[in-house]
Design a protein around this nucleic acid. Sequence first.
DNA 1: CCACCCCCAATAGTATGACTATTGAGGCGG
DNA 2: CCGCCTCAATAGTCATACTATTGGGGGTGG
Lengths: 229, 229
Amino acid sequence: MTTAASAFDRALDQLGAAIVAGELPDGHADTVDGFITRTGASRSVVREVTRVLGALGMLSAGRRVGLRVLPLAQWDLLDPRVIRWRLEGPDREVQLAELRSLRHAVEPAAAAAAAREVRDGRGSTRLLDEALVAMVQAADGPENGDFLAADRAFHAAVLDLSGNAMLLRLREVIEEGLRHRALVERGELAPDRHDLALHQEVAEAIGAGEEERAAACMREIIERTTPAR
Amino acid sequence: MTTAASAFDRALDQLGAAIVAGELPDGHADTVDGFITRTGASRSVVREVTRVLGALGMLSAGRRVGLRVLPLAQWDLLDPRVIRWRLEGPDREVQLAELRSLRHAVEPAAAAAAAREVRDGRGSTRLLDEALVAMVQAADGPENGDFLAADRAFHAAVLDLSGNAMLLRLREVIEEGLRHRALVERGELAPDRHDLALHQEVAEAIGAGEEERAAACMREIIERTTPAR
DNA sequence: CCACCCCCAATAGTATGACTATTGAGGCGG
DNA sequence: CCGCCTCAATAGTCATACTATTGGGGGTGG
């Protein structure tokens, strides 16, 4: 079914994708009526869409001046929608590189924060250990997908333990991209003994409250799976 | 002037703040008409507002079911609006702590990335050096504000050099919060010789392409200015 | 010829009402 | 007691009229 989503969703997706793809380039001026023609949606719908695109920093609106596409520098590049549009457009490779780099930045720091939380008695490593067990079990199993799912759960648990809701949010953002990539470079990441050992050490370090070791191991994990650049 | 902003802006701010403040708690159900009454705005405006709040993950809408306030876990905590609302509401301290922690995570990694960029010939340290000069000059001047501005410019230049648009975006998010804090704990951060030297070393390390040293120094800078936690 | 100001038309913003589609819930039949 | 079916509540969509703002063009004075 092509028209499963609402008129609003369709119009938003169409215009957002068009902007990201450069079909409506930075500085392009248009009007509400122009968008009505372009999308075939009604005035109300187009206005709601422009509000959301405005909230995403992709569009500005002014009286007598119409709608104006804003430069990429102003976009909310951390919004899942924007990320998806970029992954589906010509920016795909850039977006993937940026997600990787973001992951390099965030996860080791999150591991350190998690260790701190545990040391100060604000969190338990239960979820972490459970994910670890699941990884070990899945490593022997036939389903590679199970292993990857357990891996994701492990990393999610670390971010969760960090006690920082913003970091947790960032994880969802990153995963959005990694899932996309998984569809292309699938099957590469078979279970790996050393990788497993590293995960175990991260959990251990977090449980022992050793910030530095947790961060260092996490850094190594990420460097192994997502190559230098 | 209290009514400077548009009806839309006022309604959005009112409802967003109400949700963040817990006045409309997680799970609270309401209707469009309810929001019309509450805000005094027209249908169109309220609908546009609900679209934006929906995009921020704060509200869901369903036919026959009305509008429903979503749990914090689903909010777009990286959106400047949400951050501002949280800073102005009861979550203020939590939000500040999370911003600090985010900064700990992001800036050292960005410094490392910047060093990599320079080493691989993709960026120049010009802006960095300029900011450094401005800091040195301002350190001797009478205006503490100038020093802080130069400091911000320095950190911005590092994020910029990292070549990662998402990180740059994150910086704006972080600054939003730090500016807020500056209004309260003002004047604390007088120019400091050692601090200046560290900045200089960061610039040097980035210029020399030494990832590790750049990250380590940056970590030290941040630990000095924003205490452990 | 230039600079300034004023007016106007273009365009987003606001308001309202009518109609449509979806879906949870309650009732009815098996 | 269970499943289906109807119905009414409610968001979604569309159309239209009116309001407010403002950039730019044209006119006026220097």
